[in-house]
């Protein structure tokens, strides 16, 4: 892994939330390198700080202390406008509950991202990549959960992000759809070279990752490597 360049670097990242009078220390000094083109899975117990860490990586939250740099540039102190610009240009999100706009068709949902991106794919092409060209004019309510998640992936990938963040992308899906989504993620990772960071509870999925970071008590407790990651379809559940 070390022969790949570092895309993102987290150094001693802390995040504290003030809940009433109590300060909740969610991240307590995270150090983590994310390499270009890798598939990194983050695992941890509920409340261990996975989602908060993911938010830091994606630029939708900022550390209370510490430094995050992307391609060498410090993003932890950016103002709202530049941070938004970072997300717009560099990051694609896939959420557990898809977060599609119910009043837009699949194609239009993808266009929400392509309309603001610098050098996007054609939305139809993005949907084709996820195998949904036949259903591009369907609305979210007319699509299955797996299909909705594929639309969300198309939306994420369509702007050619360098980094794609998936927060429990298969958490709301059945087995068949889970495999389909994972295959797709893996294919996008391998074919486009997009760096992927994924949160998941499913132990089986860790075997398809290049690396697995375990988070406990707000810190990276362990990072393990897979010398030969399995294909999604080879996973044993």
């Amino acid at each position: 892994m070390t022969n790949r360049p570092v895309l993102m670097k987290l150094e001693n990242v802390h995040r504290t939330f003030q809940v009433g009078e109590i300060a909740v220390h969610v991240l307590r000094g995270v150090d983590l390198d994310i390499y270009a083109g890798e598939l990194l899975i983050i695992q941890g117990e509920s409340g261990s700080g996975k989602s908060t860490l993911m938010n830091m990586i994606g630029g939708i939250d900022q550390p209370s202390q510490g430094k995050i740099s992307f391609e060498g540039q410090d993003i932890s102190q950016l103002g709202d406008r530049r941070l938004t610009r970072f997300r717009r240009d560099q990051v694609g999100f896939v959420f557990q509950f898809y977060n599609l706009v119910p009043t837009l068709s699949a194609l239009e949902n993808v266009a929400t991202a392509t309309e603001i991106a610098e050098n996007p794919m054609n939305p139809a092409e993005a949907l084709d990549l996820v195998g949904l060209s036949e259903r591009m004019h369907h609305f979210p309510a007319q699509l299955s959960g797996g299909e909705q998640q594929r639309v969300a992936m198309a939306r994420a990938i369509a702007k050619h992000p360098k980094l794609m963040l998936c927060d429990e992308p298969t958490g709301a899906l059945d087995h068949e759809n889970t495999i389909m989504i994972l295959e797709l993620l893996q294919r996008l990772n391998r074919e486009t070279g997009t760096t992927m960071v994924m949160i998941t509870h499913a132990q089986a999925m860790t075997r398809m990752a290049n690396r697995i970071a375990f988070i406990a008590d707000g810190k990276i407790a362990k990072v393990s490597h897979n010398a030969t990651p399995l294909l999604a379809k080879e996973l044993i559940w």
Binding site: D80, R87, N99, T112, A113, I116, A156, K159
Partner: peptide
Amino acid sequence: RVEMATFRAIGYYESE
């Protein structure tokens, strides 16, 4: 709220 938050996450400015 979720819709707007998603827009913000995928890179829409607050003004947008």
